[in-house]
């Protein structure tokens, strides 16, 4: 048995700083993903064929190719095609946001479809215009129903961000790996990173439950 954590003790603050980077990517990507998800979901349930096709195509592309590939393509495409220098963290936020938008759109679409059809009829009967009906009547009810799925998506996203190590964003994973290289001990920092991810997941799960409880006040 050769396991010695003492060698990485001085590097612990360095690895912990990665939490901020990981959260930054996960939160940024979730916000982008949520916005894209709502827009795509509206396209999918709408009556405009072109928009529906676009939304379906978008979803199939982002679900049908590896996330790590999407990440690397965006990382290399932006400087090469647009001649803009882009840092790993913004790249990651964009890539994860675009990707998660595809998944979130499916969750939201299902959530909207699950709202009682009578809600839409009642809104129509009151003369409420489509946009307001969606924004104030239908989507709030849909979100409440799908909140567990959305929290789950965020937790998954938070873990999945570990692949940003391939574009050298200094998240928890990358920092653990760097410490491994510097101390010639990879296992201990990686185990430590694993513990951090696990604790983050537990905390996020707990927070998710709290939010769900808060939203249940109208039941």
């Amino acid at each position: 048995m050769n396991l010695d954590f003492t060698a990485i003790i001085p590097s612990i603050p360095y690895i912990l700083k990665g939490i901020g980077v990981t959260l930054q990517i996960a939160i940024g990507a979730s916000i982008i993903g949520f916005i894209i998800g709502i827009l795509l979901a509206l396209c999918k349930i709408g009556k405009v064929n072109v928009l529906r096709w676009f939304a379906d195509f978008y979803t199939s592309i982002f679900r049908g190719t590896p996330l790590v590939l999407q990440l690397m393509i965006i990382y290399y495409a932006v400087p090469q095609l647009l001649d803009i220098q882009i840092d790993p963290v913004p790249t990651a936020i964009i890539a994860f946001g675009l990707n998660s938008g595809a998944y979130i759109s499916e969750i939201i679409r299902a959530g909207i479809n699950a709202v009682d059809k009578g809600q839409m009829e009642a809104a129509q009967a009151l003369g409420i215009p489509y946009a307001k009906m969606m924004k104030d009547i239908i989507i709030p009810q849909a979100i409440k129903n799908i909140l567990p799925s959305l929290v789950n998506e965020f937790i998954t996203l938070n873990k999945e961000t570990a692949v940003v190590t391939v574009i050298s964003a200094l998240d928890i994973m990358r920092r653990a790996y760097i410490v491994g290289g510097a101390t010639y001990r990879y296992l201990e920092p990686l185990l430590f990173a694993g513990v951090i991810y696990y604790i983050m997941t537990l905390v996020l799960t707990f927070l998710g439950k709290r939010i769900e409880k808060g939203m249940r006040k109208s039941d």
């Binding site: 009682d116 009578g118 809600q119 009829e121 009642a122 009967a125 009151l126 009547i137 709030p140 009810q141 409440k144 109208s218």
Partner: peptide, 13 residues
């Protein structure tokens, strides 16, 4: 034209 439905359809939230 106001309408009242069999199943009420109040906005639950």
């Amino acid at each position: 034209v106001g309408m009242v439905f069999q199943h009420f359809h109040l906005f639950p939230h």
